[in-house]
């Protein structure tokens, strides 16, 4: 049997965020906003969901008196992402022969 896809990651925006963060040491909110083309509100909600799942950490600070939000993937997030990709390749291989 194939593993179920992690529902936290199997969402377009949350998966985009995680795919960006897996390749970077950390990224600012504005960078994630630029790359995912999401709205500020939606991005905030999805970041909080990932944070609640323990997949990312969010640091709030200030730069030149402006609030600065920096996101970083956690070790738990890295393993969840790796498991997701593994489960995904299982699905893809299973569907390959009948894929038209």
């Amino acid at each position: 049997m194939f593993k179920n896809l992690d529902p936290i990651l199997h969402s377009q925006l949350r998966l985009s965020i995680m795919s960006l963060l897996i390749s970077l040491e950390s990224a600012e909110f504005s960078y994630l906003l630029e790359q995912t083309k999401a709205t500020k509100g939606n991005l905030s909600i999805q970041l909080n969901k990932l944070k609640d799942a323990g997949y990312i950490s969010i640091k709030k600070s200030f730069r030149n008196n402006y609030p600065l939000t920096t996101c970083k993937i956690t070790p738990k997030g890295i393993s969840a992402f790796e498991e997701y990709v593994e489960a995904l390749s299982g699905y893809i291989h299973k569907n390959k022969p009948t894929d038209h």
Binding site: L5, H10, S11, Q12, L13, L15, S16, S19, L20, I22, S23, L24, A27, Q35, V85, L88, S89, Y91, I92, N95
Partner: peptide, 25 residues
Amino acid sequence: MEEQFNEQQSLKLIQEMIENAKSKL
């Protein structure tokens, strides 16, 4: 609202985002 998307799209999205993050100069 969360969009439903299939495994192929999911994989494509991962590849695109990793590529974007990598291309930082």
